[in-house]
Write a protein that binds this DNA or RNA. Structure first.
Lengths: 108, 108
DNA sequence: CCCCACTACTCGGTGATACCGTGTAGCAGT
DNA sequence: ACTGCTACACGGTATCACCGAGTAGTGGGG
């Protein structure tokens, strides 16, 4: 699949929120998870910028823990504001995708 | 529905392509059509920048025609490259929405 | 023992996109 | 003459995903 970057704007952050919401995890693992989910071209730098944004926006709780396989990891979990943001993301996504599907129907 | 602008990046241009593809039309009417389709906050300036971009990218055929109700209108129709771009847009959209739906499923 | 690979995070800068505000203009009705 | 609707163009802004380079910790092969 060719370049999805423009289409990912606004949705990739929501995907990261969803992953964090389902399990406390860290940046490197989130990137690998996105890759295996089909977001093949998403790179670590992108995920880390999103995580820093979430942290600055006070949507996550961060816990630093040592790793057996390298430098220490920063584990992320959603707080109340993060869960609200995640719910808002899914509401927007449902709205947008229904609008787009109806546009496609009306067009033919 | 609150702000969709980030999520519209990459998709709004595709919506405009779809509208042009189904009927030769002009900027002001495209904006009204988007509004009634549920893209309520999309403003004329946004649509015109997209149309100029399509024109510069050689994806459309442009015909200027006088109007009974105001200044002359620029009518847009897809050319071969535009139709290819539209098909590519739908392919990307299907890919992305299927990935996101599967992410949501796997999360719960 | 040293280099390499993998893991793990940070940061400055880039390009693309939707949006905002303003300006220009034609036409119709009061 | 004034207001409102139609119709388009343009400079500037914010946000986002991405890129590139840098910093580190761990373990294995030559």
């Amino acid at each position: 699949m060719d370049d999805l970057t423009e289409m990912l704007k606004g949705t990739l952050e929501g995907c990261v929120l969803e992953i964090i919401g389902s399990e406390e995890t860290y940046g490197y693992a989130i990137t690998r998870r996105l890759n295996e989910l089909g977001f093949a071209d998403v790179i670590e730098g992108t995920v880390y910028t999103i995580l820093l944004r979430l942290e600055r926006g006070d949507l996550v709780r961060v816990t630093k823990r040592p790793s057996e396989k390298g430098p220490p990891r920063k584990f992320y979990a959603l707080n109340a504001a993060g869960r609200a943001e995640l719910a808002a993301f899914w509401a927007k996504w449902e709205y947008l995708s229904s609008r787009i599907d109806s546009l496609r129907e009306s067009g033919k």
